[in-house]
């Protein structure tokens, strides 16, 4: 199993690590049994993601995908952020080993879960907009 240089760069120097105290949306996916937990914090102003932070427990790929996903959506509109797929995260990282693909799925789900939380806080039902919010059990998939 080999990580690309991009993955190693994002693992060694992860972007946007941390928490946002007054976040407008927070999403957490994964579980300890699986070995990956990702938590994403969003600051949203006028439908634009003005700030994003993450905290991740997991392998090198889990950290790198979180870092890349946050970088890809920072400054983007919610609509654009919702279009972010796990393949886009993987591509931006110059690929992931096959056994680590689920980490990129987790990153996509964490982001969607945070956006869903943002809508919920506004009193809106996120399901029609987002669909699966990453709260589905991840472990049983593979």
């Amino acid at each position: 199993m080999e990580y690309s240089e991009k993955v190693m760069d994002h693992f060694k120097n992860p972007r946007n690590v941390g928490e946002i105290d007054d976040a407008d949306g927070v999403g957490e996916v994964g579980n300890l049994k699986c070995g990956d937990i990702m938590k994403i914090y969003l600051k949203i102003d006028n439908d634009i993601i003005t700030d994003v932070k993450f905290k991740t427990f997991g392998c090198g790929a889990a950290v790198a995908t979180s870092s890349m996903a946050t970088e890809l959506v920072k400054g983007k509109s919610i609509n654009d952020a919702l279009k972010l797929t796990n393949s886009a995260v993987m591509e931006a990282l110059e690929g992931l080993p096959p056994v680590k693909v689920h980490c990129s799925v987790l990153a996509e789900e964490a982001l969607k879960s945070a956006i869903a939380d943002y809508y919920k806080r506004k009193g809106m039902d996120p399901t029609p907009i987002i669909g699966c919010t990453g709260e589905c059990k991840h472990c049983g998939k593979e």
């Binding site: 190693m8 693992f11 427990f57 090198g60 889990a62």
Partner: peptide, 14 residues
């Protein structure tokens, strides 16, 4: 506890 082994090994490697 609260760290993942692969991350730990990769970070030690750096």
């Amino acid at each position: 506890e609260a760290v993942e082994g692969e991350s730990l090994v990769l970070m030690l490697d750096t």
